[in-house]
Design a protein around this nucleic acid. Structure first.
Lengths: 207, 207
DNA sequence: CTTCTCTACCTACTCTCAGTAGGCTACCCG
DNA sequence: CGGGTAGCCTACTGAGAGTAGGTAGAGAAG
């Protein structure tokens, strides 16, 4: 009946993952601002100084969450696009968009908080978040650069950033009001809007 | 030599504007998170309780700043688009985009912090910010709805939200790396990307 | 089995800062 | 020239980010 002295020792890597999982949950529920480190530590079942030992600061913890989910998103969309390679550029575009919206669906609020609404600061953390976001844009710049070999880098940049921004906002709209529209359908609608703008790519179509 | 007893009484409406101006500055410099109410009050030359009297909370102050700058942006772009009406839809689109990028240029970091990076919370403030943001989207939905009279509301929504998202991200990119590209040039590039997606509008062109 | 040591872990603080209680005073109006 | 009110202040409370300094479990070495 005396309460269990359940101090269970766990290797660092594993605890880090537990902490990230709990933090992602709480951030998604309450938002970054309204989350206290005490609450995260409570939910993991570990004391606060551990969080600081492993992640330096509250911002650091947020950054780690963002990095993790971004990496997941990146490999997911990359995989989908690679799988659609045979269908030609248009199919690749649609596959990437669909994978993105599907990812957003599966991760719900965590996606919105961590990828869109969370940036807070004007200091190094902002840089860090933008850098992580840059992965996605660079991926698109690569692909678009290959398709539009003779377009100016500026044009490629505008298209890539524009497409990323459009995806984010459309995904957010779906989360709030537009959930009646499925990932596939949404992807096609957005691709329809953007595709004709890629004038030069009109060569290889679906089989 | 005894320091001035400069308690200068100022009517409420005027003080509110002073406070908003100072807050916008500090938020832009430090970011929301790293700004203390004490610092804002110091800069205005007024004591902290005044800020709370007029704006309820730190979030409330942020919200007021956002609302103000959003309203400014809204009327600016609206005006530019109205002025371009005679040139046809394509000219209206370009004018709106150019006004947007120009606005972002003029407001520098304040724009980035207040319109893009500042949303913080999961509670009512998030709703409020989204509502303010909604102005812009609704404006576009109106215009697009008129141009694409026979398109489904879903398609119009995707286009409107997509275009807003694209503008935001492209503007942000310009602020960081792409400032070599002027507002006009950027607007044309983005319009080129999106325009052909508005298939049905191809009727009225420039004189 | 004992001791050594390394790393996971904790309790108990400090300090900054959002938000408030309660009162004062400049200015207008009669 | 005395109210009355609107603008203003000093001086607090409480929450929560971040830290100092120490405890203890588990494997290695004897």
């Amino acid at each position: 009946m005396t309460d269990a002295p359940r101090r269970k020792r766990v290797p660092r890597a594993e605890r880090e993952q537990q902490i990230l999982a709990a933090a992602e949950e709480v951030f998604a529920e309450r938002g970054f601002q309204n989350t206290s480190m005490d609450e995260v530590s409570l939910r993991v079942g570990v004391s606060k100084p551990m969080l600081y030992e492993y992640f330096t600061s509250k911002e650091g913890l947020l950054l780690a969450c963002v990095a993790r989910i971004r990496a997941d998103l990146h490999s997911t969309t990359l995989g989908a696009m690679a799988a659609a390679e045979a269908g030609g550029p248009r199919a690749v575009l649609e596959a990437g968009l669909e994978a993105y919206f599907d990812f957003a669906d599966r991760h719900g609020r965590a996606w919105a908080v961590l990828l869109n609404e969370s940036v807070i600061v004007a200091g190094p953390a902002e840089e860090a978040i933008e850098a992580i976001r840059g992965q996605q844009t660079r991926l698109l710049e690569d692909v678009l650069g290959r398709w539009l070999a003779d377009a100016s880098p500026t044009r490629v940049a505008v298209l890539a950033h524009g497409l990323v921004g459009a995806s984010e906002r459309v995904a957010r709209w779906r989360l709030r009001d537009g959930s009646g529209t499925g990932p596939r359908e949404t992807a096609v609608l957005l691709a329809d809007a953007f595709w004709p703008g890629f004038a030069e790519v009109e060569t290889s179509a679906n089989p």
